[in-house]
Design a protein around this nucleic acid. Structure first.
Length: 265
DNA sequence: ACATTGACCTGAGAGC
DNA sequence: TGCTCTCAGGTCAATG
């Protein structure tokens, strides 16, 4: 379920394994993972090129190429990366394989084909074309922006948090987490929330995403008061001990504590 | 313009 | 054991 913090982990992974190394060849094992490009074009673009830097925007990861352009990775729900010596077999479900001249490979893995791999010349234009809102952790994304987004909407707050055109990076798991830690019911509408609650939600969302992003680079050890390890109907709420409940919001399984997150009205 | 719903993809796990 | 069914969820197209 790669969301913003997970993609931050992939960024660290590429930064610590794959930068500045000439790419000898690229294999596309399943063309369906490509969008707006072909195996041929991708191979040609990457050949004898290097990944110089990475930039994350929402759930997208951009790897800047030495010779113009960006390799774009989206991980869908089951995406992963693996860097390994060439003599080893690639992991199961590998879809794209970069072979570096240094005898190592970088595998882009996707089990359910929900991710995407492509290339673009212009990163900003790509983000615009995908209709992505500001990155949820961007320092320039302020509470004022957040409040403006909420003011124009009437869907459940959870749907708004997950809407990539509103803000980019929040998915099912971390929207639940931010709402849990803010004490807000996932089905609450913006008009149900006081300004204080909206401020708290914005602040909490940023803290949760930032904390998770920092820790996913290392061991997965989140605070004891996180809902994340308790995403199961009937599990004990880490705050109050009452049973966690599940409800479907905008077609997604959503976990919350009825006591800590009372339903509005 | 915004909101809502279902399809897509396929492996894991449940139930029989 | 082996079959079928349901569910997972990020995104997009279709519909209201």
């Amino acid at each position: 379920m790669p969301e913003l913090p997970d993609v931050a982990g992939f960024k660290k992974y590429i930064d610590s394994t794959s930068l500045h190394q000439p790419i000898a060849r690229t294999s596309v094992l399943d063309e369906r993972i490509l969008s707006d490009t072909s195996a041929q074009k991708l191979s040609r673009t990457l050949k004898d090129n290097t990944l110089e830097q990475t930039i994350r925007h929402g759930k997208f990861l951009f790897a800047g190429l030495e010779r113009t352009g960006w390799l774009v990775l989206h991980f869908g729900m089951t995406g992963d990366l693996s860097y390994f010596p060439s003599e080893q077999d690639p992991p199961e479900y590998t879809k794209v394989l970069l072979s570096f001249e240094n005898g190592h490979r970088l595998a882009y893995i996707s089990r359910r084909m929900l991710g995407r791999v492509t290339v673009t010349d212009d990163r900003e234009q790509f983000i615009e074309g995908q209709d992505l809102g500001p990155d949820a952790l961007d320092p320039n994304f302020t509470y004022r922006d957040f409040a403006d987004i909420l003011a124009g909407r009437n869907s459940p707050i959870k749907s708004i948090l997950m809407d990539q055109s509103a803000m980019a990076g929040v998915g099912n798991v971390y929207s639940d987490e931010a709402l849990f830690q803010s004490g807000i019911h996932p089905e609450a509408r913006p008009s149900d929330l006081t300004e204080h609650q909206q401020r708290k939600l914005f602040r909490t969302m940023r803290r949760v995403l930032g904390d998770a992003a920092d820790r996913l680079g290392r061991v997965e050890r989140l605070g004891d008061d996180f809902l994340l390890p308790h995403r199961e109907e009937g599990a004990d709420c880490p705050r109050c001990g009452q049973p966690i409940r599940k409800v479907t919001v905008s077609g997604r399984g959503s976990y919350y504590c009825p006591t800590c997150q009372p339903k509005p009205k």
